[in-house]
Design a protein around this nucleic acid. Sequence first.
DNA 1: TTTCGAAATTAGGCATGTCTAAATAAATGA
DNA 2: TCATTTATTTAGACATGCCTAATTTCGAAA
Lengths: 220, 220
Amino acid sequence: MDLTTAEENYLKAIYHLSDGGKKSVSTNDIAAEMNTKAASVSDMLRKLGEKEVIEYRKYYGLQITETGKRHALQTIRKHRLWEVFLVEKLNFAWDEVHEVAEQLEHIHSTLLIQRLDSYLNYPKFDPHGDPIPDEFGDVRSRPRVQLNEMDIDQTGQIVAVKDSSAAFLRYLDKVGAYIGARIKVLDKVEFDGSLEILVDQKKTLFMSKDVAGNILVLQS
Amino acid sequence: MDLTTAEENYLKAIYHLSDGGKKSVSTNDIAAEMNTKAASVSDMLRKLGEKEVIEYRKYYGLQITETGKRHALQTIRKHRLWEVFLVEKLNFAWDEVHEVAEQLEHIHSTLLIQRLDSYLNYPKFDPHGDPIPDEFGDVRSRPRVQLNEMDIDQTGQIVAVKDSSAAFLRYLDKVGAYIGARIKVLDKVEFDGSLEILVDQKKTLFMSKDVAGNILVLQS
DNA sequence: TTTCGAAATTAGGCATGTCTAAATAAATGA
DNA sequence: TCATTTATTTAGACATGCCTAATTTCGAAA
């Protein structure tokens, strides 16, 4: 059962909106996400139901089937692998890759994706810090570490803070180390455990071990 | 005037069958090449005529326009660059690449193809030995200028260096001004002709007039 | 519990790109 | 030259994927 590009895009949107099949999704939600109208969505839901990637009962709602999840995760896997390729090999900025990856994710070739994965050295995360499902659709649990525990040259994305006092958040905002920022450890001072950090491939900043200990990073 | 994937495929077939516009092509020839029926071809020829990539008079024949040739060559260029990528980087065998390249050639992104070309080191032939059209048969080819001759706010892409000594290349690599990098002139010092350059919308760097004189830029 | 409004679906239309069958133009040869 | 064959085009269908407008269903408020 092959899916068209449009069907793959709808399925991916449904997967994301439902948080992997956990939450329920409305026709209007999907229409908003896909920039289409509710009528088009109803049409598509019928087709996706016939192809058995969702279970669809009109007016009641839908549920992704196991087959559907596999398909969606496969598309997400391709999208994120291409993003890694674009950033690491073709020097795209991490915010330039989405549109192109949206096209590349619909190329059909199992061999291509296997080889690309190998060529990129089996990356576990894309340039935005999102995990890349393996070829069986399994997603690796996201290892959050304290920034002060990272080694030189390791990279990641700031995903949370331990101390969320206003003062601390103000400080982070001021230095540009917001939630979501991608960071790289440039240097570590052994003496006091302070760090030199590259933020978003642009700014470098120094922080004490105490500050770094309050920042949780998703390693990539 | 954008072409659909189907239109690009017809145009490419016409270009090949006509040997670049030299020979005449019949509706049946095209139908055979495309694995479709003559009726479908007639339909498509009308559309391609309306989009002015061919000059079409029914029952008489067709001729590719200059615009059409440009489009066809661009598609062929993309196809062959992807073939080089698949063989050289992903270890595809030369006879495994065609089907995948048929899909990849329809990805729309000028930046992607520029970067891919650079990444592959500007190959002149694909794995089958067919020549790869260069970027400038397609749109109006722009002259390469020395970086030191550009004015403030002008943009372009580094395409070559005059001095290719190892030391100079090491320097370029160190500052991030690799072949393929997109640059913008932020400032020029009149006194000594040195420049402030924005590289890939991220890093700024200063360089002397002498260094800039060794860098060739394709203006955009 | 009944009604009313929001959400969802159906009806019908349009564009693309394909097909088969019918019609028409061009080419060929007696 | 004119009839016949061949090439090509048109006519009309169908599938996909989108739209607007009309209709149906559900659920929440009275």
